[in-house]
Simulated assay, not measured.
Amino acid sequence: MEFTGKVALVTGAGTGNGEAIAERLLAGDSSVGLVGRRLEPIMAVCKKIDPVGDRTLAIEADVRDPAAMQSAVRHIVERFGRLDLAVNNAGITGPAGTPVQSLEIEIWKEVIETDLTGIFYSMKYEIPAMLENGSGAIVNMSSANGVVGLAGMAAYTAAKHGIIGLTRSAALELAESNVRVCAVAPGYIATPRIVKSGKDVTDWMASTHPMKRLATREEVADLVAYLLSDRAAFITGSVHSIDGGYTAQ
């Protein structure tokens, strides 16, 4: 029970990786504020992983809205008394196969504002709450494509690279404050959305990994939990790939 007495915030917690991460942190005995753009999926996850409702809080907030993220942090602190951990996971991919010159400006803005600026807004309000406690840990969800390039997905790739730079800068700023910041860079993961895309798609995704399979959500959640735990007390400013060897090629 490595998170007993700790309070966590997870964005994009209504499905996919966010849901698995919230469940993993709850299993480690933390209380968890689940944040999502739509309330219904967040509430459904809360009921699934915490039927009594003692240790979860569903919060409707769009990470692109700084006031909404400020309010989300405030509500978690008001409910549970503190904020110790944060996983900034909310993100979108945007279209695939679109070269830079053909990418619509509004799509570029939407991806960058969600995937990169949304993490900045989240950290802007998470960090002061952690500094007030005198400690904390943040994991920002980048991607294998935040380490290498990906043709046809310039906005997503740029945002995921930017997350790594933001993570490293914040980690250096906070290094003497007992607040750690790391990034996780997954390859393709067997989330419900990806599985629904069909066997041809998932087989192709698996084929891009030298290990020839997709990651499970639980594998990603376990890595995130380790980085948030006291076992990782000397780890900050680093990027942790979980991609079946994809970025080693």
Rank of each mutant, 00 (worst) to 15 (best):
E2I: 11
A8R: 00
A8D: 06
G12P: 00
T15N: 11
G18P: 01
A20F: 02
A20Y: 01
I21Q: 03
S31A: 14
L34D: 02
R38F: 09
L39I: 10
E40I: 14
I42R: 01
A44M: 11
V45N: 00
K48S: 14
I49Q: 01
P51H: 15
G53D: 11
D54W: 12
L57D: 13
A61D: 02
D65Q: 09
P66L: 10
A68I: 14
S71F: 15
R74K: 14
H75G: 12
R82P: 04
L83P: 01
V87G: 15
T93V: 09
T98W: 09
P99E: 14
Q101L: 15
S102M: 12
I107V: 06
V111P: 01
I112G: 03
D115C: 11
F120C: 13
E132T: 14
I138K: 00
N140G: 10
N140S: 05
M141C: 13
M141K: 02
S143V: 01
N145C: 09
A151S: 13
G152C: 11
M153G: 10
A154I: 08
Y156V: 08
T157L: 07
G165P: 03
S169D: 05
A171N: 03
A175Y: 15
S177W: 09
A183Y: 01
A185M: 09
Y188G: 13
R193K: 09
R193T: 14
A206F: 08
S207R: 02
T208V: 15
E218N: 13
E219K: 00
L223C: 04
A225T: 04
S229R: 00
F234K: 07
I235T: 14
G237T: 08
G237L: 02
V239K: 03
H240E: 06
Y246W: 15
Q249W: 11
